[in-house]
Design a protein around this nucleic acid. Structure first.
Lengths: 203, 203
DNA sequence: ATAGAATTTCTGTTTGTACGGAAATTAAAG
DNA sequence: CTTTAATTTCCGTACAAACAGAAATTCTAT
């Protein structure tokens, strides 16, 4: 049991979480943001601790060490340690040395466009690429399988085509220097209206 | 307990899954695809049953009813029922009446571009939109909060800006008729090279 | 080399989610 | 209105992920 008070008063869990976000008046905008972010993360497939730590570092002016984080969020040190490792793996945060302090300190990438790129890259590597090789392997097998319904084969191929195109497109996107991204987004509007005007839409 | 054999032989779980994909030679390309798809789904945040059922319907030539699915995948009827409901919610499958059969039958959207659009729409509604309103609420609070570090405020605003732009862009994208999507993707290449040539990149 | 501090790994517990089976509800046919 | 088939809701179990605390390891300074 994390907190003995919870034994006879379950609602305490919420309260203790709140008060554990220490040196922010507990319901400050910053604390709210961190809470929301953590919640969203878990909605999203990212675990809550990781998302909260990320939010905390994203809003932090100065580098934080593991203990700072553990204290401010009320999360166990070990947990913080693992979460930091994961965030470093995504390159969303990085270690930074603080003179005269031998503990490891961390700062977050604060450019939101850069963040988005990093997340997109990570998701591509962890989700799209494996999917593509899985489909490839299926199709390799399907092609020399006798008596396979041609519709099945063609659906699989459609899927492979789609993944290839999407993959290529996202690579292009990721290779655009972030200084140009805003320009691209703005140009997007023009391109879209152009496209929608050409020919007749079928749906 | 799902399967009594599992009690003394955990590996049986895998084996039983395999043999339960009944009338496809169990390691056929189709069965492989379904297995992969289910696995990917769970990697992805979608639960395995849902993903498997979707794959089965995607590769299916004719509409299937709940019992067909339950039998072919070896998943409990109740489970199939809930999963179907979820897939209908995403509009990835739809009910279709089969003359002379009072059971409900289902078919999947088979156009991969349409599928992608539906998924993107769903994710936007379930993940992006709530995030945006959460941030909005934080910022509303932050603005009339005295003594809030200006850096914190500006970081939150950056995030809000980003989400707004990305949201707008993706709306545009989703409103492109799918018949035009391929054209857009192809044009994409040109636009990207153009962008990368203009001016000097800063990273 | 050793003491002390910082970090990571390990282990048990807790929490949440997936899922099968039964019970309940709904819908159709006679 | 009753009977039977189809579907959904409910509930308990099983599985997996998150997490805290302790133990073990690594690192740094002396």
């Amino acid at each position: 049991m994390v907190n003995p008070a919870v034994d006879f008063c379950p609602e305490m869990t919420f309260i203790s979480v709140m008060t554990e976000i220490a040196d922010m008046s507990s319901s400050s905008a910053k604390a709210q943001f961190i809470l929301y972010w953590g919640d969203m993360g878990s909605q999203w497939g990212v675990n809550r601790s990781v998302a909260q730590i990320h939010a905390l570092l994203f809003l932090s002016v100065s580098p934080l060490n593991a203990e700072d984080i553990s204290d401010q969020l009320g999360i166990a040190r070990s947990n913080v340690s693992n979460s930091l490792k994961e965030l470093v793996g995504w390159k969303l945060i990085r270690r930074i040395p603080v003179p005269g302090d031998r503990r490891e300190h961390f700062v977050a990438e604060v450019d939101v466009w850069e963040m988005a790129t990093l997340i997109a890259q990570g998701r591509k590597e962890r989700e799209i690429d494996p999917a593509m090789s899985a489909i490839d392997s299926c199709l390799r097998q399907a092609k020399d399988e006798t008596g396979l319904d041609p519709v099945v084969l063609s659906r699989m191929q459609d899927m492979q085509d789609f993944l290839k195109t999407a993959d290529h497109w996202s690579s292009q996107m990721l290779s655009v220097p972030k200084s140009k991204l805003n320009a691209l987004m703005k140009m997007g509007d023009k391109v879209f209206s152009l496209i929608k005007l050409t020919g007749k839409k079928t749906d």
